[in-house]
Design a protein around this nucleic acid. Sequence first.
RNA 1: GGCGGGGUAGCCAAGUGGUAAGGCAGGGCUCUGCAAAAGCCUCAUUCGUCGGUUCGAUUCCGACCUCCGCCUCCA
Length: 468
Amino acid sequence: MGLRFFNTLSRSVQEFVQLDPAGKEVGMYCCGPTVYDFAHIGNWRTFVFADLVRRYLELKGYQVRHVMNITDVEDKIIRRVRETNSTLAEFTGQYEAAFLEDLKTLNCLEPHHKPRATEHIGEIISLIEKLLARGIAYKAADGSVYFSIEKYRGCGCTYGQLLKLNFEEMRPGERVKSDEYAKESVADFALWKARVPEDGDVFWSSPWGEGRPGWHIECSAMSMKILGESFDLHLGGEDLIFPHHEDEIAQSEGATGQPFVKYWLHGAFLLVEGRKMSKSLGNYFTLRDLLAKGFTGREIRYLLLTAHYRETFNFTMDGLQGARTALARIDECLGKLRELAAGRPEAAADEAILQVFTTALDDDLNIAAAWGGLFDWVRELNRRLAGNALPAATAAAALAAWERIDSVLGIGTVAEAKAPAELQALLEARQAARQAKDFKRADAIRDELKAKGWIIEDTPKGPKLKKA
RNA sequence: GGCGGGGUAGCCAAGUGGUAAGGCAGGGCUCUGCAAAAGCCUCAUUCGUCGGUUCGAUUCCGACCUCCGCCUCCA
């Protein structure tokens, strides 16, 4: 069986069959950040999830074209620009830079395309014109342009592909107020928002007057520009299912008459310490907050990757602590394998563990099961290592397999820190003292090294220094 | 109120109509001058509660309790 994903469109797990029957290329669009603040750990779960999808597709031999938009114009941004007395580019630039830096810290592969909404106003306007020409959109008295769900449905299109909609039973949210303008129907949504005084300098001219794009239209315009009218995968957080993604489908299919996206994948939210993240609860963390607590991007990435992407995940500080220990377990094992395999030429990867790994991930990215298999593998290797029963060739094969596995996990390996020469000398002095049975002195040196941040590891092959 | 997803050990988390992966923490052991580090072993007669179907249910069905998400610019 091949790769299967849970597709929100069908609400079921489906075999992944790329649109392009000939080529290996897969188009993948992931809703990126709105750059008005630092991204928080919940946002990062989604981006790490998208990174996992991409890396796994690449392991499977697909050539992925990965697009992630940068939303750099939107209500909140405009408000903050006004409040901070900065320009739009200045304001969004700093958060975009921070975002890309954080993405690296988490060892996410950089998307091939990172289109900004403000740089695609032309494409957005053309798309809106297409919808107007088809009679699916209308211009309101205030100069805004709206998408008409009724007209769209009248064309035989389906609104509500990603979820069951029941407009009669819907409770209008509070946010409707701020977005009312002059719509024909409450369900309609803005494609183009007419300029209002609060927008300040943030506006573009259009055939309908000055204004700015609505929220959903940028994703339709940019994804179709780069990936074509129909593409394979579209990812995002589960909260985007409605209205964002539903509206993207409507705009895109309304304009092209073609199916927009074949597979929609949505990542679940996370809780922090068992509760929904909120600033008032004190459990709201940006990546930077966690780094400041002494955790590494690697540990955070690992923890975010321990649970299945469609399950709510409880992110905890205990979990982060545990991530550190779990990673050390893998590192130790790999370190021993490297020692054993040192100098051996490239080996063929151990197929058995690769099989375990891909069988788990093929099943809608069941990464928890994949980790289970990996830790079983580590234990078995440790057993054999401890019994001196592991041939060097087997160690080399295991390492070759790990290299491929880690091309997906992105956990990497921490190079063993080399102690400076003077500490190495201290270690030797201690060893001499031990041999002379001067344990007092030996222990004093041990304490000294510990104070300097190095732990002595007395192995059967002699003492080693390890960074605390 | 409508729609959707959950509740599995102290914590995190897979999974299955046939008797519960894995990680962390805990306990034991090996190694050691003692430690530490590391490794190995161990750790749920039970899967929110109550009923039902079944030879058999944690898994299917129903009710209830409870948590989370969406219901118009929130990953």
